[in-house]
């Protein structure tokens, strides 16, 4: 906006223009003024209507080429989303197979722990097998016979053995004492009852072969009886202390 003083034209010119504008806009009850008013109201109304329409415009006012472009856009979006779905499904399958693989590994590890627990005597075991009862009224059965019996049972495929309340494992030892037999330092008194899990017929046969355990016990003055059972419980446990010197050899494969 420039100041009238500095303009090349005389200032009254602009003042005349403003006056003319005001005079034209002065309210009067002439017909033309009313008509102008009506037209102005219609224009204001139409502007607002159009502004609102533009802000809520749907598809129906679009032209053909715009619709074609929109359609192409939607098509492209659909393709892109479909490929995204495929990708995600692939990764879902990958993750699922990986998790089942982990479950498998966990199950295998658990089986291994169970097997090792039975082998090391840290887990109770149950299954078919035999009980071998050795009566020794005159204390004439030495530890060697018991050791022989255990060796014989192992040869016959015994998987878990217990002498009275002592579990027999790889490093179990037998020694004679005054009143009975020491099994890994635990005093065991007659009658000795061996509970053995394994193939019962094979175990029973191994005990009763001529010159075997039964015959030897009878020869030294004791009495041995074998009982085949479908359910033998070996529930004596050993506590295993971690080895002080031996370490597992590191391997890359689990």
């Amino acid at each position: 906006m420039s100041t009238p003083d500095r303009s090349p034209r005389p200032p009254r010119d602009a003042r005349h223009a403003w006056a003319r504008l005001l005079r034209a806009g002065t309210p009067s009850r002439s017909r033309s003024n009313i008509l102008v008013m009506v037209l102005a109201i219609a224009l204001g109304f139409a502007i607002i209507a159009q502004v609102r329409q533009t802000s809520v415009q749907g598809l129906e006012t679009l032209r053909e080429d715009e619709l074609v472009r929109l359609f192409a856009d939607v098509d492209q979006d659909g393709d892109r989303l479909a490929s995204e779905i495929r990708d995600l499904q692939t990764s879902l399958q990958l993750l699922e197979s990986r998790s089942t693989g982990e479950e498998e590994a966990q199950r295998a590890a658990k089986e291994r722990v169970d097997a090792l627990g039975i082998l090391a005597g840290t887990a109770p075991a149950v299954g078919s097998g035999i009980t071998l009862r050795i009566d020794d009224p005159q204390h004439t059965v030495p530890a060697t016979i018991l050791l022989d019996a255990v060796q014989e049972l192992r040869d016959a495929g015994a998987e878990a053995i217990q002498v009275n309340d002592v579990r027999v494992v790889a490093n179990t030892w037998f020694a004679d004492t005054r009143d009975g037999i020491s099994v890994s330092g635990v005093e065991v008194r007659p009658p000795y009852v061996l509970r053995v899990i394994g193939d019962s017929n094979t175990l029973a046969g191994a005990m009763q072969i001529p010159g075997g355990v039964t015959a030897t016990v009878r020869r030294v003055g004791g009495e041995a009886s074998v009982d085949i059972r479908t359910r033998v419980v070996v529930d004596a446990l050993l506590s295993v202390s971690p080895p002080r010197y031996a370490r597992p050899v590191p391997t890359t494969t689990p």
């Binding site: 806009g25 309210p27 003024n33």
Partner: peptide, 8 residues
């Protein structure tokens, strides 16, 4: 003036 009022 009239048209401005009408527009408003």
């Amino acid at each position: 003036m009239i048209p401005a009022i009408g527009l408003a």
